[in-house]
Design a binder for these strands. Structure first.
Lengths: 188, 188
DNA sequence: AGTATAAGTGAACGCTCGTTCACTGTCAAC
DNA sequence: GTTGACAGTGAACGAGCGTTCACTTATACT
């Protein structure tokens, strides 16, 4: 098998969050000698499936945390999809820029439904105390927290839902931005 | 500083996808002796910010690939959010079960808009050749690819959009499932 | 049968790892 | 001023690392 070894390393990596040593790989692959592993790894390196850093240690490359990005799918009328590998993306790197100030919340309620954010969705937000007009924010208005469009015209600020059922919220005392929306994640 | 060291290790980790060795940390922290690092790491371990595996090597723990999950945000009427740390989630582990058969596509078109999937969204799908009624799938119908609800009643199968503008698609010759939808990701 | 190629074993190498120890400097408490 | 805790230095250790070498076994080609 070509990448049977590769996938064993991958599962070790996602279980242990680090690469296995050569002696660990002897057990992984069922070899009795580190040299056998050494030769296997050499081929994996040639195939670009794994890499080594400046001093001998294995480091994960493409296809470890990364997922292939195959192009576009037309959700309208059917069309031939270009199913060729465009690139690979790491979900973490793609979604998280400032790790220290990023957190997640689960959405309850339906006031952002016209922005296609529904109950049960997970939102990835980044702490901030300012936002631009029309950004979606987590904000504290008169002491209570909510997720809405942030609106700003001149020196007037208010919050606006994405649902005609609800009214815009004008702060009586305070409107403090807590975080701005960076991504929405919905699991099926 | 309490976790100035911690965050230096974190940035090393996200840049190199592995933990630094003690000698690398001397450079990272500006020490001249490995022993100084050793003592710092000891404290980080006590604080639960980092861990060691069965034989001395550092392994990433909480707060490396993980993002804090702070609870619910009400998108309807404002409410006090419980801003306490409920748990930490790793995006990769949360979204990807079978890594080898998972890939991503960018959505074009608006036929799934009533399922709150819009143009520009990224969909994470898992290769499969069967699906249950009402699952969202990537399918090939009469030679062309599209994303729709998969419908099955008795031995009749067809595809259904989530947009009243479009009609259900009944296969003339073939309907092959390519993948089933696992997650939707929208970046802002 | 004979030989070349590939794949695995087992022992050895030097090097870096994590850890330990004895020592030096700094600051605060008494 | 002495003492004690704390933080950093520098040298040393045994262990495990990645790598190399010589040897064996199996498969395939003449």
């Amino acid at each position: 098998m070509r990448n049977e070894h590769q996938s064993k390393i991958e599962s070790f990596y996602s279980a242990n969050k680090r690469m296995p040593s050569y002696s660990e790989m002897t057990k992984l692959f069922g070899f009795k000698s580190k040299n056998a592993v050494f030769r296997v790894v050499e081929k994996l390196i040639d195939a670009g499936m794994v890499a080594k850093d400046h001093l001998g240690r294995l480091v994960p490359t493409q296809a470890f945390g990364e997922v292939p990005m195959l192009g576009f799918i037309t959700a309208g009328l059917p069309a031939t999809v270009e199913e060729e590998l465009l690139e690979r993306v790491n979900l973490d790197d793609m979604l998280i820029q400032k790790k220290a100030s990023t957190y997640m919340l689960e959405v309850d309620g339906d006031s952002m439904i016209d922005a296609h954010i529904e109950k049960g969705d997970m939102v990835l937000v980044e702490r901030a105390n300012t936002a631009k007009d029309m950004q979606i924010v987590i904000a504290e208005i008169d002491g209570e927290f909510t997720m809405k469009y942030f609106r700003k015209e001149g020196n007037k600020v208010w919050l606006e839902p994405a649902n005609k059922k609800y009214q815009p919220l004008y702060p009586e005392h305070s409107l403090n931005i807590n975080a701005v929306l960076k991504a929405v994640i919905r699991k099926y």
